[in-house]
Amino acid sequence: MRKLMLAVGGSLFLVAPVSQADVVGLGASVSYWDSDLSGQAATNNDVVDVENDLNLDSDANANASLYLEHPVPLLPNVRLNYTLVEQSGRGDVGLTGFDGVTGDVQSDLDLEQLDLTLYYEVLDNWVNLDLGLTARDLTGDLIVRQANGLATSETSIDGVIPMGYLAARFDLPLTGVSVGAEGNFISFDGDSLHDFNAYGQYEISLIQFRAGYRQMSIDYEDGNDRLDVEIGGPFVSAGVSF
């Protein structure tokens, strides 16, 4: 399945025209994402609702990105993006329980992903359009502990996943204001991952400020473990570009 997913994602490069920056460009940004979580986790044929049963709530979400654009023909531009989502909560899985854990529980969910994106600039004026391919290194761990400490369950996913990449931005001339959206996506054989955001941006000199909304959906199976969750909420970011 993974080979077919890679082939599907890689086909984006066959249709992307070669268009590069006129000069070398470098940029970086950091952001805070205030997200809510919903969905289910499953292990060993047991299923739990992460919102209603576990009462998971956001502890910390962080995001950082770095990109390099260059004028070298045929070679793609490069973007690195790191996202960390941490959720915890006290809940109740009842007498039927989840994976051997029953009653009151303390739960922690950690999702970590590192993206390497290779992309081409298809348009680069007041309308900007980028197309490319992302390799996402995704790890996720859900720990559910019985309140009395007698039983613990762990649900884990781990994989490197190819995804399509699309980014568009529209600049309002002479204002420093722009609006845009970007996303990664893949869907195949029951697994799917989607990660989109839409934003407004204000740029002054080398500094960029963004505010928008990000929605991430993960439906991924790794052996006997599966995460089927959605994470969404507003974000703010600050960055520099040279």
Rank of each mutant, 00 (worst) to 15 (best):
F188Y: 15
P234F: 02
S19W: 12
F235N: 00
D22M: 01
L37K: 00
S237Q: 05
L193K: 00
Q146F: 07
T43G: 15
G91L: 15
E69W: 07
L116F: 14
V177M: 05
S156K: 15
V122L: 03
A41F: 04
N44C: 09
P234L: 02
N63C: 07
G190T: 11
T134G: 09
M1L: 13
I218E: 02
N44A: 15
D130K: 12
A147V: 11
E203C: 07
G140I: 04
S217G: 03
N44K: 15
G91E: 13
D46H: 12
D36A: 13
I143V: 12
N55S: 13
D222T: 13
L193T: 00
D124W: 00
F185Q: 04
G183T: 01
D36G: 06
N55F: 12
S153Y: 06
F209N: 01
A181P: 00
A21T: 13
F185C: 01
A238L: 15
L116T: 14
Q87T: 10
N148G: 08
N45L: 13
G91S: 12
N45H: 10
D222P: 10
N125I: 00
V229D: 03
V144K: 05
V50C: 02
G103M: 06
G180R: 01
E51A: 05
G190Q: 09
A7H: 11
V177T: 10
G239S: 06
T155A: 09
L131G: 12
R226L: 09
G132I: 10
G176S: 03
F196T: 02
N128H: 05
A16P: 05
N81Y: 08
L142E: 13
D137F: 04
L66V: 14
T43C: 06
V101H: 09
V30N: 05
D59Y: 06
G25D: 02
R169V: 01
A135I: 11
Q146A: 09
T134H: 07
M5F: 11
S11R: 08
T96V: 13
Y82Q: 01
D130W: 07
T139R: 06
Y199E: 00
Y120V: 07
